[in-house]
Amino acid sequence: MGFIQQLECAIVKGDINRATALTGKCLREGLHPSEIIEQGILRGLEIVGEKWKTYEYFIPNVLVSAMASKFSLNALKPTLATMNSRSAGKAVAGTVKGDVHDIGKKIVLMFMEANGFEIIDLGIDVAPELFVKAVKKEKPDLLLLSCLYTVTMHAMDDTIIALKKAGLRSRVKVLVGGAPITKTFAVSIGAGEFGMDAMDGIQKAKELTAGGRGGRKKYGYESRIPSPGV
């Protein structure tokens, strides 16, 4: 079994020490960080998600695997930092009003952070006016809206309407995501893009920011290094 498959197993088992060590081994073997993220960490998390759906895993299992992923990403950070000399952009994120789910959103943000984004997470059940306030204050390149339930999808619409009313819609790109969100829905509410899943979300975030301000260095922002979790 190659190091990357071993890393996948370590993520599934939530073996923090092994995940950290194997990430280093993968890098020394010459693997590209995006390959390590996609084939090691994300694949491991996908298996964890499947196990959770089939009641083989419980929430603590998901939490410990997410921790192992954080440690693995932290081990990648120095290499990623040399590759992304400029900050990829600044993003304000949150789960929309009425919805309290954030495991998926947290995973996307964790990977975006590792990819050089500066993240301001507003948390869960965030009212449209709070998003507007944060966009005014932080002046982000991207606004990330997430939800899990179909019944809370309309809050995304409300948030975008609130942005328009405040005259901020043209100043920020909006990326929406979550299990029930489709491209048609994203277009219908006037969001810029939608993320199919975690990896797609990161990719879309990169695309949206690349076409805009082209990095944050001219504004003097530094990529915030998140502390690893336990």
Binding site: G14, I16, N17, T20, P60, V64, S227, P228, G229, V230
Partner: peptide
């Protein structure tokens, strides 16, 4: 609670969080 036994890297991570 902790899900894994304490070790230096976990300790550092928590200390970083409460710095």
């Amino acid at each position: 609670m902790l899900l894994r036994p304490m070790n230096p890297s976990i300790e550092q991570a928590v200390l970083g969080k409460v710095k």
